[in-house]
Design a protein around this nucleic acid. Structure first.
Ligand SMILES: [Mn+2]
Ligand SMILES: [Mn+2]
Ligand SMILES: [Zn+2]
Ligand SMILES: [Zn+2]
Lengths: 148, 148
DNA sequence: TTCAGGAATAGGAATCATTCTTAAAAAGGC
DNA sequence: GCCTTTTTAAGAATGATTCCTATTCCTGAA
């Protein structure tokens, strides 16, 4: 993993507080949850600074941006690959310890102590048309905009 | 599956066009993609009518609301449980035929013709605290709002 | 068939997470 | 300390979705 002093990023105090706070949490906070915490240490920080830094830190591989479902994105200070559980009632997100994976389906998960109701799975890849484009090195555009 | 004439919903012409159009598609459209199509048949329909009806039809189990990742929700006329593939380049979403599930990981998926790069998995359930609440019949609140 | 009351609609405003913009401040190399 | 580049704070803009409201449409009972 890239370390703090190897990044091309200047280490501002805001950046330091954001990454420290996130790495100290096991709660997979949203940007605004993190903002509320970080603000206690740097009361003048702005929400967009939090967003911008989370984006950049994730770009450098120092943190992980979670692309889960739900209306708000969550961030993870743990950059190892692992899966997550979300509580259907309160929205809390926890890690699934890797030993628990594989045969985990329903019932109570011994290692994470959740009552598992189901899971959501989405495969990602390239559709037949895009496979060709990608091989020819055409850039991957994220998503087009529409208008009424 | 609940049929059209068994719902508590009045069958308005807008509703009929929306459900017919969605069921005729295999593309998992977003609300506004569907709006663009439906508008060709009923030019005066509004986007909020499309949203409202998709919500209600999903509530009756006549269609499926897909809770995938990405910034826009998608809808599916097929109410059977199945999984999906999303193209990382163009955003297209297709079905994963059920025979292909289980051992599907990477490489080219024979049945769906995508080059599979990975998948996104999120388990859903109740956290230790909420398990108790849910058993006592306390209502499941979707998600609280915050303010700065 | 008519009609009253409930349900649904069109259109637009409101909401909310996220991204963008800009002028001013802070880092770091010298 | 000085200069160049990056970063910041603050707020505006964006875009998907939800909400609001006056009007129109259905439908069941008379
Ligand atoms: Mn995690
Ligand atoms: Mn489908
Ligand atoms: Zn919970
Ligand atoms: Zn594609």
């Amino acid at each position: 993993m890239l370390e703090l002093d190897e990044t091309p990023l200047r280490m501002t105090s805001q950046r330091k507080v954001i990454i420290d706070e996130l790495r100290g949490l096991r709660t997979h906070p949203t940007a605004d949850e993190l903002f509320l915490r970080v603000r206690k240490k740097r009361p003048r920080i702005s929400l967009s600074t939090v967003y911008r830094n989370l984006e950049q830190l994730a770009g450098c591989g120092l943190i992980q941006k979670l692309d889960l479902c739900g209306s708000q994105r969550r961030y993870d200070g743990d950059t190892a690959a692992h899966h997550h559980v979300r509580c259907l009632r309160c929205g809390r997100v926890d890690d699934i310890p890797s030993e628990a994976m594989g045969d985990l389906r329903k019932g109570v998960c011994k290692t994470c102590d959740y009552e598992i109701i189901g899971y959501r799975l989405e495969y990602l890849g390239f559709c037949p048309r895009c496979r060709k484009q990608v091989r020819r090195g055409k850039p991957v555009k994220p998503k087009p905009r529409k208008k009424g």
